[in-house]
């Protein structure tokens, strides 16, 4: 049992971190009333930038490279999400359509530039990915230490901490209250002097930043290079985590951990008695089936922010 936990928990954290980060982005965007199907594309962009920056500057920056790479990917993700923001907030475009276009655009740009810059469909492996570490002091605690703090990625803990930060911002600050108000009832918020468009822009840009961060963490911990098939579905799984977590940062974190658990089960299930007989396919589809069940009300009702997906046009009822 102890061995099983020690093999499973670091793996869960490892697979969940990118999902948690991206899902937090989704929570910000959707809480402000902008549907973000484009999370997948934002992750692609983050993965692409993270890998390219890492490959280009690893000689100059040494062991700092992965950290600076994810910061740069965060910034570029934020900028890239502006396209979605402009289309869906300023131009009143259908937000789902715009998100679909973001997904196509990100893969197109990523692979196009990879071919132009590297002359082939995928990049080389990076020299400076993230490595597992043990957290000093904490790893020495008996039982808990080896399970939670040995052989883990620091990025996993950053993701968990950011989830709490996001919760604090959304539920304990005036900014968070305004952001949620804009997503529930933009007209009422507007009447109270909250700038609806500005709040929504900030929320979408935050989702781009988190998506870029999530994508780059995924690329630099799990795959170490970029190609058209680096990100296949992680963004949509993050979106599922947003909904399964009922549009709440901590809920999304829990859902992402659960999905990470399901994913890691398909990797380590062979060693765990009860699970080794379950066909892998059930573990693969579990997150999606559960999301549908959650939406259908079997696992507590999932209620979307009321104005989610509706453009706000000043003066119209």
């Amino acid at each position: 049992m102890f061995d099983a936990l020690q093999s499973i928990i670091p793996t869960v954290l490892f697979y969940s971190a990118p999902l948690i980060l991206t899902a937090l982005g989704g929570v910000f965007s959707e809480r402000s009333g902008v549907v973000n199907i484009g999370l997948e594309g934002l992750m692609v962009m983050g993965a692409f930038i993270g890998i390219v920056f890492n490959l280009t500057f690893s000689d100059a920056l040494g062991s700092w490279t992965p950290w600076i790479s994810i910061v740069v990917a965060t910034i570029i993700g934020a900028i890239f999400s502006l396209i979605h923001a402009v289309a869906s907030i300023s131009f009143n475009a259908n937000q789902v359509v715009s998100g679909v276009a973001i997904n196509m655009l990100a893969v197109g740009i990523g692979v196009y530039l990879t071919k132009v810059w590297y002359g082939k469909g995928q990049t080389d492996m990076v020299d400076q990915p993230f490595y597992t570490t043990s957290i000093p002091v904490l790893a020495d605690i008996p039982i808990i230490g080896p399970i939670f703090f040995e052989g883990i990625y620091i990025t996993s803990y950053i993701a968990l901490i950011l989830a709490f930060v996001a919760w604090y911002i959304l539920y304990k600050t005036p900014f968070g209250l305004r952001l949620r108000a804009v997503g529930e009832h933009p007209m009422a918020a507007d009447t109270n002097g909250i700038k609806v468009s500005r709040m929504r822009y900030i929320a979408v840009i935050l989702s781009g930043a988190f998506g870029g961060l999530g994508g780059s963490v995924f690329a630099l911990t799990i795959v170490s290079n970029f190609s058209g098939s680096t990100i296949v579905g992680q963004g949509f799984m993050a979106l599922a985590a947003v909904i399964f977590g009922k549009w709440h940062p901590l809920g999304a974190m829990g859902a992402a951990l659960f999905f990470g658990f399901a994913q890691s089960l398909s990797v380590v299930s062979a060693g765990i008695p009860l699970l080794e007989n379950i066909p892998q396919v059930f573990l693969l589809i579990a997150p999606y089936v559960l999301t549908i069940l959650a939406l259908a009300g079997f696992i507590g009702r999932a209620e979307a922010p009321r104005a989610n997906g509706e453009p706000y046009i000043k003066g119209s009822r």
Partner: peptide, 14 residues
């Protein structure tokens, strides 16, 4: 690269 067409299609959608 062939992906240019994907970019063009995505932009047309936008």
């Amino acid at each position: 690269p062939t992906e240019l067409v994907d970019i063009i299609i995505a932009l047309i959608i936008f």
